[in-house]
Design a protein around this nucleic acid. Structure first.
Lengths: 315, 315
DNA sequence: CTGTTAGCGCCTTCAA
DNA sequence: TTGAAGGCGCTAACAG
């Protein structure tokens, strides 16, 4: 019978068994190494249990996320994996009443009723801030991702802001810039931050892509990293350790986290009681892009006399 | 009725309509920006036509590719998108007799009976070789991807080899190294090539990831790019234009190519007659990582007296 | 242990 | 225009 090339029909199978062996995952985009890793890990773990991944992307738009979620449900997915916990309430409610298992990844803590596997974005950033403070930095700026409709990006900004406030500092408007996660935007963001007066001695980036852009732009502008400017990223992508200087960043065990998310899905589909929120540990990896601030900048917190902003040479 | 949260059941629908509205795509891996772009483009174009992407990966293993293809068919995909044309004959035959539309992407030309959208990997590389020859290079080496089970990687090596041979040169074993597509392996590969005597004055890389690694390693070793060593990549990933020096590379219009592949799928599912093989134009983008060879190296083709190999400092 | 059958939810056809 | 019914391919329950 296999000689005849028979393969079962999944539609009929799904109809009878009332499950499709298919899990949906919705990502903001797939064009970011951190999500590529996620897809990879999810896909592999699900495949090990004979399940297939159905992929959808939202372009960071919550309405699209809702549409895609319903689309996937129509497609008969047995469960959903979502990024973060910031989904529209109406969507969450609909998923709840439909009884589809949902696992939220990358955020922790999470609202009571959600199943989540993630890390504490704010706490991680607070750790970064404390590290920079310990080095002697006082002028700490942030090159953040777009926080709108992105609970992780927002939590990272909040973490930085709160930690700075706790240290008697703050995050003034000129020290906070939001940019898309691409190298061009990141470079532009760094230039904007370098216009601030006094100029920051350290820039915390919302993720490694932003940090790569910042690093490249600093190199181009002749701003020495880390001597004149410290840069910190988030994610620890492969490239982070290869750049020169190597990037100090927050390591996220993405592979393990997404694998665990897949496991939660599988448990839930087995009918097992799954833990609500699971925290994944992240840690600061110190490399060459951070150092104490230059002596002149260390002295005080008050504005230095205005200087001409570094002119942005054309590429 | 939508107020009750009704969504149709895709299984039943698929059964009745004899199509699932689902297209399968099989990639070697998703953890490479070039494939991430591909997934993104495919997914978007299919979504525009109300179709959903089912994703599978092979880890560059042809057996896994066969298994995944059958898996996807079981899942009821209406069509398949595959990378390259190097699939096992038994798989292609099975797909043919089953009558599933299949589109092969990234390779051109393709065997008569296949529907393909791709570019001529060998010709693109020949163009790179000619460019380097015109600059005056004679010692041209290649840092290739793993060619086994990868028709694109193999075609790129063949393109380089043939073009060198046509110029009365060749690609001796010491000038050809194959490495996985990751930065660590690429750096190692560059070190290996730099041991060759005489040392190459230009290195053509199988893709941009390898080129990034080569560039980073050259920087670390203090080998000036492009003054002492020219480096060429393939793909034109975002990072290529941002690195210092910016990478000379072959631009592949990935977005357009994958979109067209999706279009071919859609046409085929409409029952339209689809063009067999469509060639996508690629072009060399000259940036800062290539220049004429250093004067000393330019002189002759014969081995220079052996020197100590560049010692590989630890990172 | 093997063989038969009902029904999963939808769409299309045919009847009223 | 609205309504009823068959069958897509499978599995599980049940009969022989």
């Amino acid at each position: 019978m296999t000689a005849l090339g028979y393969v079962p029909n999944a539609g009929a199978r799904a109809m009878k068994l009332r499950r499709s062996g298919t899990v949906g995952a919705i990502f903001p985009t797939v064009d970011n190494a951190i999500f590529a890793k996620a897809i990879d890990a999810l896909q592999r773990r699900l495949a090990e249990s004979g399940m297939q991944l159905l992929l959808a992307t939202t372009g960071y738009d919550p309405e699209t996320e809702t549409r895609q979620a319903l689309n996937l449900l129509t497609r008969g997915v047995d469960a959903l994996v979502l990024c973060g916990t910031g989904q529209p309430e109406e969507l969450l409610q609909q998923l709840r009443q439909r009884g589809v298992p949902v696992v939220h990844v990358m955020s922790w803590p999470a609202p009571q009723e959600l199943v989540a596997v993630g890390f504490d974005n704010a706490r991680a950033m607070a750790q970064v801030v404390r590290y920079l403070l310990d080095l002697g930095h006082r002028r700490i700026a942030m090159l953040a991702g777009i926080t709108r409709d992105n609970d992780r990006a927002a939590a990272r900004v909040a973490g930085v802001r709160d930690a700075l406030q706790a240290a008697g500092l703050g995050l003034p408007p000129a020290y906070l810039v939001e940019r898309k996660y691409d190298l061009g935007a990141a470079r532009d963001g760094l230039r904007a931050l370098l216009q601030a007066d006094p100029r920051p001695t350290a820039v915390i980036c919302g993720n490694d892509v932003l940090a790569f852009g910042a690093l490249l732009e600093a190199n181009r502008l002749g701003v020495a990293v880390p001597a004149q400017l410290s840069i910190v990223g988030f994610d620890d992508l492969e490239l982070a350790s290869h750049l020169q200087p190597a990037l100090t960043t927050v390591r996220v065990p993405a592979e393990a986290m997404w694998r665990l998310a897949a496991e939660r899905v599988i448990e839930a589909l087995r009918g097992a009681e799954v833990p609500r929120a699971t925290e994944i540990d992240v840690s600061l990896v110190v490399r060459g892009s951070t150092a104490p601030p230059p002596p002149r900048a260390k002295r005080d917190l008050r504005p230095t006399p205005p200087r001409a902003a570094t002119p942005a040479r054309r590429r």
